[in-house]
Nucleic acid binder design. Sequence first.
RNA 1: GUGGCUGUAGCUCAGCUGGUUAGAGCAUCAGAUUGUGGUUCUGAGGGUCGUGGGUUCGAGUCCCAUUAGCCACCCCA
Length: 457
Amino acid sequence: MTSKSSIPKGTRDFGPEVMARRNYILDTIKQVFRLFGYQPIETPAMENLSTLLGKYGEEGDKLLFRILNSGDFLQNVDLSSVNGVSDLLPHITEKGLRYDLTVPFARFVVQNRNELPFPFRRYQIQPVWRADRPQKGRYREFYQCDADVVGSDSLLNEAELVQMVDMVFSRLGIKVVVKINNRKILAGLAAAIGQPERLTDITMAIDKLDKIGIEKVNEELAERGLPEQAIQALQPVLFTKGDAYAKLESLKKIIGHIEEGTKGIEEMTILLKYLANSKLSLQLEFDLTLARGLNYYTGAIFEVKALDAAIGSICGGGRYDNLTGVFGMPGMSGVGISFGADRIYDVMNELELFPATSADTTHVLFLNFGPDEEQYCLPKVSQLRQLGVNTEIYPSAEKLKKQMRYADQKNIPLVVMAGESEMAGNSFTLKDMKQGGQQTLPSASLAKAIHELLQAK
RNA sequence: GUGGCUGUAGCUCAGCUGGUUAGAGCAUCAGAUUGUGGUUCUGAGGGUCGUGGGUUCGAGUCCCAUUAGCCACCCCA
């Protein structure tokens, strides 16, 4: 019995079959990103805490994984003057694992501003970490696939992001609804009901409308300290009916007198117009209750949900006007989206949407009959590899049954056998594991036969 | 940070109101088959029943604590 080993809560190992499927998702996303002119970058897994802290709200700060300083990290700490953990932390940790890809990207842009072509379009596919309590569809380590463009405030970017969402999910075969809204409209609403300061409280509460219902939302608004009349003033908005344009018309009546709200309505109108010309196959919904948690969003916001699976959002994003400002570079607007690869995987798994194509594996296995036969096979093995055929030779002369089983388990389609009789005839026996048939061929025509069989598959 | 559920073989689980040696399927290994896998048949190995304490003549089963995992809330991809 070996000692019990395990991995940290909320993290996972990925075996070869799972990796094949994960790569299928990531490759699809990458292809679409490139198709729209986005270029890849990577940033370190860890950032200085000064980069991370304060960007995700109070809750986000709590969910940051902090990295203990190396060495004798207590050396210069005066423990008697420290009062509690929160007081001690800044003295013993100065780095943390990244929480998302957007903030590190903003840091990257500011640091490299002189080298980058603007508007700069980048994509980034890397893991992020959150010290959450894991549950269904929620992990402590997961991949985000981000595409952002900074240095352009054109709404064409927003429209293209929605097109990318459309393309990714139609290629993957997932039916989705894209919900869109605009933070400026929400800000206008907050102002219209006389509570411009309470934007975050309002949005966080109404974001849950379809989940907990209007009564609970109102309760929560009250708990968050909103006066009754403000809550009442909000009610008609929450139930604005009709298509997107009808909603915009109703909104004009409510927030038309507020400058920011009007701006939001204008932006939404333009975006809808772009999208009307984009031949989308996905379902688009202007959802006034969509708020999204991250508080750096300032314009359009998106969220994508799978229609046939209950797993929360699988993609989200929005515009942030001043993210680089906190790193000393004001006036740079950006907009981006993030695909949650792990949740997309879970959805596709649940709905059985993965194509049958199995893991990339060996095409041909040479069975091992002994020392002389090994030598006889080696040149042929090399030749096949040169020709681009994934080839293995079994490393030891085990019983054939065992070697065949290995080929079977790895789903290797072709097996080559060469024993005494083949060596005598300068030939090889090629077996098709699927069909079960086999034929003995002259050495010179083996490669061709293999090539033809693989083509046929 | 708050609440609920569950820990039995490598995995998925059964195990009745406490009763003698704790079972099944899958997986693993060996054999049937010394140059032929995926099917079949036969056999084998593998467990301090999460951990610690308690009740009892007797605990996988009941009670308490602890720990780990899952689910929900908060928040989020």
